[in-house]
Nucleic acid binder design. Structure first.
Lengths: 186, 186
DNA sequence: TACAGTTGCCAACAAGCGTTGACCAACAGG
DNA sequence: CCTGTTGGTCAACGCTTGTTGGCAACTGTA
């Protein structure tokens, strides 16, 4: 275990500012100088503590989806629970929106996104779909619908998608996700 | 009608190079200099013919989805036809992938995307969903699923999404889109 | 007190960006 | 022929970017 450093506060401030900037501006437009300004420190500190911009991004994009255990839930409600959980997670802060934004423009961001979904959504699906060998495919289908809603609602902001309530979205998307998870392959 | 100019070939070369660059690199990283290099002309020509970078983007992102008339189709196959059409359109060239990439990072790109879907997908849904007043919402739901699949398959390239055949995708997503279009509100 | 390590700021670097204006060659109409 | 328009090149501008190294201030140890 490493002992606390005096610069921990600075490191944390940088990381927080970086997350916000990456989230709202994407990788290219989130400049180190702007991040440093937000964190009220000198740009060179960012370099000292995170090496370079890519290192900063790697450090800033460690994300926990915090998915619930689905095994203990009534099987026919899994879809709705999952959709609701993602919506809640998405509206809590801008981290996931940022990840999406960066994943689209940046190769490293896309890789990070692949890893997050494979490691965190994959296991959840493995327990509930008919043929475990098909779990990755089911997970990808679920991801396509959930990321698609996130894209239209939080990034592109298509008006009808923005105006829907979370309950309505759950009611519409829940059965879709449910089917992707538990239905027999078509 | 405007008569042909000697510079039409140059204009077209710029536009084509711009579309490819915007598609593969996104708005920020697609530099005017790189576009000009691809088109084998001087960067200043881009400025002369398209004013500035935003003008070039606007000119390069006029997109025709070319959606079919759904009125004449068997009502229960609309979903599958729509999904298949989008997949085909998406794989034909990189224009839509580029639009997606730019729409995520750039305000003007997002606006353009809103317009395209409102003008081209909106009318299609209006004819087939139970309550015409709900058409925009239905269109947004359809867009969420179709754009979500495009995102995971063509931009993020999640392996399971890439490996699925177009037929499989149509079989999985078709019923979803069908339900978003024609089912009673949940 | 002296000294080494850490933390931070400052000024500068090279490179790349969008953009501009001067300048030349080819053409068109009189 | 001259003249004005069009198509195109070239060199430069002002600015921002990521990144670097030097230098001052602080902290903890001996």
């Amino acid at each position: 275990m490493t002992t606390a450093r005096r610069s921990d506060a600075t490191r944390a401030a940088i990381l927080e500012a970086a997350r916000e900037r990456f989230a709202s501006d994407g990788y290219e437009r989130a400049t180190i100088r702007a991040i440093a300004r937000d964190a009220d420190i000198d740009p060179s500190m960012v370099m000292r503590y995170y090496g370079n911009k890519e290192g900063l991004f790697a450090a800033a994009s460690e994300i926990e989806l915090g998915l619930p255990e689905l095994g203990s839930l009534p099987a026919q409600h899994i879809g709705a629970v999952l959709v609701g959980h993602f919506l809640e997670r998405w509206e809590r802060d801008e981290v996931l929106t940022g990840m999406l934004r960066v994943g689209v423009t940046n190769e490293a961001g896309a890789a990070r996104m692949q890893a997050i979904f494979a490691q965190q959504l994959g296991p959840v699906t493995r327990g509930v779909c008919p043929d475990p060998a098909e779990a990755p495919r089911r997970a990808a289908l679920v991801a396509s619908q959930i990321l698609g809603m996130a894209l239209t609602r939080y990034v592109l902001r298509l008006p009808p998608a923005v105006e829907m309530s979370t309950d309505e979205i759950v009611a519409w998307l829940g059965p879709t996700v449910q089917r992707y998870l538990t239905a027999e392959a078509p």
